[in-house]
């Protein structure tokens, strides 16, 4: 018989005892240890989560502060840049103004220099022209020149017409003093006679004519009576030329006209 019932009963009891032993010495302690460890791990995980959460919060806070700092820094930087820009603009304006002032001053100086130079040139030219003219006229002052001058003077007198001639005639007739004819040098007797004749004929007068010499006339001749004077002199031409030169120089030294040498156009002053 393979089944021994006493053994069966004994083995059943043995097995039940083993179940109790195993529960007592194996399952309970082991499960308890596992539970404890799981609790420990759960606690540690919870702590870790809490720490992580705190860290996250701190990180967020730090990030927020960082962003705030960046924003402030950017604002300050922008402000500083704006101020620097304004300051730069101000300095540039000042420098430009100073440069403009300096330039204007320099231009004014240049203009003054040019004007002075022109005036000097003008004066010098005038003096030279006058000197040359005087010299030439002095050198040429001979009978033929004076004769031509007188001819021209007489034709000028004859050319006076109208109201002017009437006034002059009335003045000559009304005067008590002799009519004075001034020339640069003494006229010859023939020239004086022809001149007197021509004047008397022009104005229909009978009174005496007196001849005088005046060195300041510079190759000229003038007729002087009370309050009236008819004159012809090379000095008039010279004066006219002088005023023309002066106008030209003024035009040249005007702003924008340039201060450099005038282009050579072949006309001269």
């Amino acid at each position: 018989m393979l089944i021994d019932w006493f053994t069966v009963i004994a083995q059943t009891l043995n097995f039940l005892i083993l179940v109790w032993l195993m529960k007592r010495f194996l399952y309970k302690p082991i499960l308890h240890a596992i539970d404890q460890r799981e609790k420990l791990i759960a606690t540690e995980l919870a702590d870790a989560y809490a720490t992580k959460s705190d860290a996250q919060k701190e990180r967020d806070e730090f990030q927020h502060k960082n962003e705030e700092f960046d924003r402030q820094r950017a604002a300050l930087l922008n402000k500083a840049m704006d101020e620097a820009q304004v300051e730069r603009q101000r300095l540039l304006d000042e420098a430009r103004q100073a440069a403009d002032d300096l330039s204007a001053e320099r231009q004014e100086n240049l203009r003054n220099d040019a004007r002075n130079l022109n005036q000097a040139i003008s004066r010098r030219t005038q003096q030279e022209v006058f000197a040359i003219s005087r010299k030439v006229l002095m050198d040429l002052a001979g009978s033929s020149l004076e004769e031509h001058m007188l001819d021209h003077f007489i034709s000028t007198l004859k050319a006076i017409k109208g109201e002017e001639k009437e006034k002059l005639t009335a003045a000559i007739k009304a005067t008590q003093h002799p009519v004075v004819i001034r020339t640069t040098s003494n006229l010859s007797a023939s020239l004086s006679a022809s001149t007197e004749h021509a004047i008397k004929e022009t104005f229909g007068m009978e009174s005496q004519i007196r001849f005088e010499t005046a060195s300041e006339l510079i190759s000229g001749i003038e007729l002087v009576t009370d309050g009236h004077k008819v004159a012809w002199s090379i000095a008039d031409y010279l004066k006219s030329m002088e005023s023309g030169i002066a106008e030209l120089l003024d035009d040249k030294t005007k702003p924008g006209a340039g201060v450099g040498p005038a282009p050579e156009d072949g006309h001269g002053a």
């Binding site: 089944i3 059943t12 097995f15």
Partner: peptide, 15 residues
């Protein structure tokens, strides 16, 4: 092995 005995296996099966 005690499990090589039919008595043991019967006991376990009865359990």
């Amino acid at each position: 092995p005690p499990t090589g005995s039919l008595s043991t296996t019967v006991a376990l099966a009865l359990c």
